[in-house]
Design a binder for these strands. Structure first.
Lengths: 158, 158
DNA sequence: TATTGTTATACTCTATAACTATA
DNA sequence: TATAGTTATAGAGTATAACAATA
């Protein structure tokens, strides 16, 4: 085993990811994965997944919206939203109400329990976020969000 | 249709996501989704997906590493890595070489073509990243990465 | 016994085509 | 004919259990 044939060694040296780490996308992904992992655990205590959580919050904030509007806002394909709405409805968190002026569409409304669960989720997620952003000042977070928004805009105009 | 029964209206007002938008996770996710979407398109031109791309780059940077080391580094379950390695190997981009000192394990090595494709991918991703970070200074990106790393550390210690 | 790679399997999320009922 | 919601289906990505070969 010479130093000229390192490929055949068992590679006790630590594995590096410097090539990937040079990229913004990789670094943002790593932070996002950590957040997502912790958030998934927090939401699990409320029997919510990321999709049911964000769907419920959007219905609470925009009562009466249609499924098509919601799938646009959440960037979920309409067929995939159906089963999420089904789940929230069967749990008594939201209602589907036929619209009078267009009987093809449903107005989505939160129930009292839906509103309560949404509030509990928001509280829990605030605590989760406070933990993950501990030691980071409001100014730094504002700067972070400013840059993230600019990246998002750069991507949107592509 | 009175203003006191907005739930029954067809809701021509724009849909808002202020509840979700108050959270760092949501804002990071939105930026990441934009990056991922653009990166997926860029890699598609090289017949790579995010998983085959990051796997190939790790093998090029760490020639000789084992599949178990790679799955640890990429945070992919070992069974799921197998099919990715299969694909890269069948395309002639990498080799599986039995290790002399531990004949259970494979050393993963890039081929010449694997090295070439990895270089092309790195070049393409650099261009993609330059587009998405246009107008953002090096100082701002350094600040961004500093904050992202702190969030990642906060999550890791949880 | 424990580990490496593998197979089988299941679950979630995503994406598209085609249907129904309404418009 | 077009749209809203639905059904069916297929593809990724992810997760766990169990196996053969080897340590």
């Amino acid at each position: 085993m010479t130093k000229f044939a390192p490929n055949l060694a068992s590679r006790p040296e630590p594995i590096t990811d410097n090539t990937l780490r040079q990229f913004q996308g990789y670094r943002i992904k790593r932070a996002f994965m950590v957040i997502q992992s912790d958030l998934t655990r927090v939401l699990n205590d409320l029997d919510l997944r990321m999709l049911t959580y964000s769907t419920l919050l959007m219905i609470v904030e925009n009562p009466g919206l249609r499924q098509s509007q919601l799938s646009d806002a959440l960037k979920i394909e309409r067929p995939n939203l159906v089963v999420i709405i089904d789940e929230l409805e069967s749990r008594g968190l939201i209602l589907r109400e036929r619209m009078e002026h267009d009987r093809r569409a449903y107005a989505l409304l939160p129930t009292l329990e839906g509103n309560r669960l949404a509030q509990k989720a928001v509280d829990a997620v605030r605590i989760h976020e406070a933990r993950l952003t501990a030691g980071i000042s409001d100014e730094e977070l504002a700067q972070l969000n400013n840059i993230l928004a600019r990246i998002e805009r750069n991507g949107a105009s592509a």
